[in-house]
Simulated assay, not measured.
Amino acid sequence: MKRSFKATAIHGLWRLLSGWRLATLWRLAGIASRVLYAVSRRERHVSRRNLEVAFPDATQADRRQRVRQSLHHSAATMLELGFAWIGAPRRVDEAIIEVHGRELLDDARAENRGVIVLAPHFGNWEVLNFWLSSHFPFTAMYEPPKIADLDPVIRHGRERMGAELVPTNPRGVAALLKALKRAEAIGILPDQEPNWGSGVFADFFGRQAYTATLLPKLVARTQARVVTGVARRLPGGRGFAIHFLAADERVYASDETISATGVNACVEAAIGLDPVQYQWEYKRWKKTPEEEQNVPGYRRFRLYRKH
């Protein structure tokens, strides 16, 4: 009952906000992020620790400002979910003001090659999904939410422009392979930490991060082209700019560690477009090589342990 009520309330909020102007949502996100910064030690601490790794030469004041700005963008993404999933398609389409690098996708399809879009948690990735599924046959993996009653809402929102969602299991991987062999586009989240046994440690901003190895398996079996895709939020909630960036050449390596290093380099390049639009509150360096190797006392190496 509680989950059903919560799902109804969240859906109602998304529906309410779906008709609001992006500029208004951006201002509301500013208020929400200030509250989040004040009361949520976890988000504040994790974001700060991640930024210390990624930008070691930044001053404490600069890093503190980036934490605030990053939380502002993360709050905006949450408030924009109704806009991306429920809002009138015409409004979402009109909010996409710029598209850069589309030729990378068009050229691959002209060569009858599939396209793997690496979509990190940057800007508003739901807007990126909207654009991709509006312009190309597009398949992406999907894991149902913890609140099961929200599943049909989210699924409909992501599929409404033609995307096909597949499960995060071997059946889903098989569906991705079939889509690539049909010279279609698929989406992969490159910056989520996989379960043990599904990744390797590879450099990410100079520190080893446990990184999924699905990409080299897909490339080896399909000869697909890889690009990085993001929807960058324009200042003041003015709209979005879609960017497609050519992948680091290492992603095509057969060696999984080299390929994973290339994937992380792609994420770094995307972050370089506007670092504060990345979701820094995610524990990207939670797993450690010492933990994998069962090094005695490995807990002392953990980045996110509070002192």
Rank of each mutant, 00 (worst) to 15 (best):
K287E: 12
I10Q: 04
V173P: 07
L303A: 02
G297I: 04
A231S: 10
T211E: 00
N264K: 11
Y37G: 11
W125R: 01
G262Q: 01
V39Q: 10
A58P: 00
R34T: 10
R158I: 04
G87Q: 06
V127D: 03
P216I: 07
R232E: 11
H135A: 05
E184A: 10
T139V: 12
W14I: 02
F55I: 14
T8E: 13
P137K: 05
D57F: 12
T228R: 01
V115M: 04
R238D: 13
P152K: 07
M141L: 14
K6Q: 15
E98G: 00
V166R: 02
T211Y: 03
A7K: 02
A75I: 08
R284C: 09
V200D: 00
A175E: 04
S133W: 07
Q293Y: 11
E291L: 08
G239T: 04
L245M: 11
P144V: 06
A231C: 03
R302V: 11
R113H: 11
F205R: 09
S198T: 12
A75S: 14
R250Y: 06
M78F: 15
A95P: 01
L16V: 12
R182Y: 02
P120Y: 04
A265C: 10
Y210A: 02
A108C: 08
E80Q: 14
A23E: 15
G114F: 00
R49C: 13
R3W: 12
G12V: 09
D248P: 05
E143A: 13
L234N: 02
P216R: 04
A269L: 11
D106V: 09
K6R: 14
M1F: 12
R171E: 15
L177S: 05
F205T: 11
W285Y: 11
L105H: 00
W280M: 08
A38N: 10
A84S: 12
Q223C: 11
A246H: 10
H243L: 06
F201Q: 01
R91L: 10
R182K: 14
E193W: 00
P170A: 09
L215P: 00
H45T: 14
D62L: 09
P56T: 12
R15Q: 13
T24E: 08
I96D: 00
A29H: 02
R158S: 01
T228V: 14
R102S: 12
R3C: 08
A265M: 10
G19N: 07
Q208H: 09
F244D: 03
A148L: 13
A61E: 15
L234Y: 01
G19R: 07
L105R: 00
P235G: 06
G239W: 02
V115T: 07
T139N: 01
D203I: 12
L273Y: 05
A247Y: 04
E281W: 04
G272T: 06
R42M: 10
A224P: 04
A148C: 09
R160F: 08
G162D: 05
